[in-house]
Structures are given as structure tokens and as C-alpha cells.
Design a binder for these strands. Structure first.
Lengths: 208, 208
DNA sequence: AGACTAGGTTGACAGTGTAAATGTACGCTG
DNA sequence: CAGCGTACATTTACACTGTCAACCTAGTCT
């Protein structure tokens, strides 16, 4: 197990270590989904370098994790794209496929999923734009599908509702695995139904 | 600020330190909702004892956190009870009040909320029954309210759906505060609507 | 040949969780 | 009243964490 111990990169290729560290971290997270067990030392060791080598490419551990976030979001986006791709042209079916793929991703890669939604940098310094847009790219897949079902105007809110429902399910499954829940497919279907049947959004503004 | 530095408890009253540690931890969590910043050292210091004194009452840090979980769940249960209490006898209104109170709790006490849903003990040793039932007690408030709306048979599933939607919202708000979302009240109303309008659950068992 | 510097390492520091050994004063029994 | 057991707590130590400053090392360019 482990340590590719690559011998020192050549002159122009220092960036290679950056990728090596990211994939090392991703590998470790696949083996142990608990994000607290992911230390700078184990990551760098797995990549075959000493711990402080990380600081050549990342400002700190948090920066590395943020880089992982964008990578994980990209992976999720791909998973959703794939799932929707091999499905007939029915928008509702596409939405279901996406929802199921989302739940599958969360269950199959719990560590990666946890990284994506790990609390933002405490306080001041906000989430970098790269992370934000990577997240948004994944989310907009749902929005586009929803638009084909409920129309452009309601798409964002509808997709948000569905997303929050899916996310809630994955996180509860993780923190309370003993909690009894129906199967994923039924759940997704319910969510899609709720989406199609919801009132056309309280007009301009609340009234009752 | 801090350190009640209580001078050594008397013979029978060793249990007092246990409570002192729990409230110290809760206080610290109110001041800084980031659970990683909650260390054994800071907790014990706040309680006015040395770090290893914690091990007189808790097997390890995880055990202390699990004790906090039950306390936090109790607090949440109370918050829901209160919210439902001062509302007319309309079950739907009660459900809305509970949902809004839930969201309020998550927003007002982010640290406490995070503790409750912090991932279970890795691998083997499962969540203690005390924590489980404390969580269930909170959840059953929703179930009871839902029962008055959709009937006993569907109550559990309906409450689960609503709960997951609320939970998803709180956690996303925390990890992606920049994500645009509608206001809480509208959201809760939508969830309650979805709950009342949903199809009566796919018969006894899946069929198609 | 020699300097420059990109790419990494060494060593140290404060902070973390936990275990083992040690202390201290209360309350009981003789 | 003397003395002992033990409930309550501290001291000390260890392996591990993230991060900083100083150092080395070899490829490239003049």
C-alpha cells in the first residue's frame, strides 16, 4: 500500500506535485471517509514527499481541502451528466435519474461528499470563486432539468428544494445510519412529484 | 472571562464536574460554532480543572460529545414544544410553527446543531441508545404533528421528508452561506404543502 | 566555472487526545 | 483520636497534528 515516492520533479514540472497531493488525498479519503483522519502528514507521505512539501503548492491545509472541493464537485457534475445522458428524452425521467445519481454519489463516496460540504473557512476569508462556481456548475445541472419541467421562472427554486432534500437525506444517512428510511428511488420519485405539483410559487409576493 | 475554578467537589458530588464540563463545552460552542475548535483542553480549562480530569467522567472526547448530543437534542425538543404550544389548534399551523422553530434553532445555535449531527463514531461502536432516543424524541414531535394532518399511517414518512428538507437547508446554509435561498417561512410553507398534497404513499409495497 | 533558483528536506514549536503514575483531603472504622 | 481507604483530581509523558524558518541540492543559464 501507498507511497509512489516519485523522485524530485524536473525543472518545469513542479506543478505535478500539486496534482499528486490532490489525488493522494482523494485516495486516502476513499479508504477512510472520516475527514478528521485526513492529515497533512498522511497525504504527503502517500505522495512520497515530506510533510512541509505541501506548502510549496498550498497556503495551508484548508487551501488543499478547497482544491479538493472543486475536484469533487467536478466529479459529481460528471456523475450527474452521465446519469442523465443515458436516459430517454423525458425531462421528468432525467430529473429522476439525476436525483438517483446524486444519492448514489453520496453513498458511494461519503468522504468526497463530506469534503464538498465541509464548513467554509471560519469567519473572514470567504469561499474562493473557483469552489463556488464548481459547486454552481453541479447545481445548474439540476436547474436545467427542472426548467424543462416547471419552466425557467420556477426552475431555480424547484431545483433548490430538490437539492436540499437530497442533501439532507445523504447527511442524515451518514450521521444517523440507524434511522429508518424508505428506499432512495421512492424518495426521489416523491421529490420529483412534489416539484411538478407545487403551486406556481406564491405569485409576486406572499398574500395569504 | 471564564474559569469558575471550583475548588474540588466534596465526597458524594463528583458528578457535578460532569455537568460542569458539559455546560462549559456548550458555552464554548456558543461562542465559536466550529466544532474542531472545541478541544479537551479548552473545555476543562473553562470548567476550572486540568485536562485529564475529563477522563474521570467520560471515556474519551467522543463520549463527551455524545453526551452533548443528547443535551442538544433535548434543547431542540423543548424549542419545538414551545413553538407548537403557543399556536391555535390547527394542525397545519402547528406543523409550520415547528418547522420554522427548527430552522430558527439551526440558525441561532449553529454549533449545537452541528454537534447533534456530527458523524457517528467511526466504524464499530455504534451510537449509544441514549443519543438515539433523544434524537427520536425530537423527531417524534414532527411525527405527531404530521399524524394530525396526513394520518397515522403516513405520518412517519411525511415527517421524515419534511425533516430531511429542513436539515438539508440548515446544513447548506452553513457550508455555503453564499447560496441564494428564499426565506425560511416560504420554504416551510412549501414543505407543509408538499406534505399535505403528496400521493398516499405507494400502497403496501412497491409495485411499479 | 560559477551563480541563481526551482523543488524539497530538516528541525523545531505550540497545540491536540490519551495513558500511567502521583498526589490530597474527606469520612469511615478501630 | 489515629490511621487508613478511596473519591476526586493533578502531574508528567507520549505520539500526533498544522505550520514556520532555515537549510540543502541539483538543473539551468550566462
Amino acid at each position: 500500500m501507498s507511497a509512489a515516492a516519485q523522485s524530485r520533479n524536473r525543472r518545469g514540472e513542479g506543478e505535478r506535485l500539486r496534482d499528486a497531493l490532490l489525488t493522494a488525498a482523494a485516495d486516502l479519503l476513499s479508504e477512510d471517509p472520516d475527514i478528521d483522519h485526513l492529515s497533512v502528514r498522511t497525504i504527503t507521505a502517500r505522495a512520497g514527499v515530506t510533510h512541509t512539501a505541501m506548502y510549496l503548492h498550498f497556503a495551508d491545509k484548508q487551501a488543499l481541502i478547497e482544491a479538493m472541493k472543486t475536484a469533487c464537485f467536478a466529479e459529481l457534475t460528471q456523475a450527474l451528466t452521465d446519469a442523465v445522458h443515458d436516459v430517454p428524452d423525458d425531462p421528468v425521467a432525467g430529473l429522476r435519474a439525476a436525483g438517483e445519481a446524486y444519492l448514489r454519489f453520496g453513498a458511494a463516496r461519503p468522504g468526497h461528499y463530506a469534503v464538498m460540504f465541509h464548513s467554509a473557512r471560519a469567519g473572514v476569508a470567504d469561499t474562493p470563486d473557483t469552489v463556488r462556481s464548481a459547486g454552481m456548475r453541479a447545481f445548474h445541472q439540476l436547474v436545467d432539468l427542472a426548467a424543462a419541467v416547471v419552466g425557467e421562472a420556477d426552475a431555480h427554486d424547484a431545483a433548490t428544494n430538490m437539492w436540499l432534500a437530497l442533501h439532507g437525506r445523504i447527511t442524515i444517512r451518514r450521521s444517523m445510519p440507524w434511522f429508518p428510511m424508505s428506499d432512495d428511488i421512492t424518495y426521489v420519485r416523491e421529490q420529483v412529484n412534489a416539484l411538478t405539483q407545487r403551486r406556481p410559487r406564491t405569485a409576486p409576493v406572499t398574500h395569504e
